[in-house]
């Protein structure tokens, strides 16, 4: 377990190093591949879902408070 953890840590650390050592091209590198493959839509779907869930939660809370307000006014 310990070995696995340290292995993952090293992996993550080297990965970030590789990202940091991007060479300076004439054209700034963008996530073109990701957009070409169309996989970015997966991320968009995930973010949109999370946001939708939070909003549903807020709306729910809003209506619960409205109900309480009505009860107390009676």
């Amino acid at each position: 377990m310990k070995h696995l953890l340290s292995f993952i840590t090293i992996l993550v650390l080297t990965a970030t190093n590789i990202f940091a050592q991007q060479t300076v091209n004439q054209e700034p590198t963008m996530a073109d591949k990701m957009y070409e493959d169309g996989r970015i839509y997966v991320v968009v779907a995930v973010v949109a879902t999370i946001f939708a869930v939070i909003i549903v939660y807020l709306i729910n809370m809003d209506s619960k408070i409205s109900k309480l307000e009505k009860q107390i006014k009676k």
């Binding site: 300076v24 054209e27 700034p28 590198t29 963008m30 996530a31």
Partner: peptide
Amino acid sequence: PRQPVLHE
């Protein structure tokens, strides 16, 4: 727009 350093 494509910008150095910032990228995506």
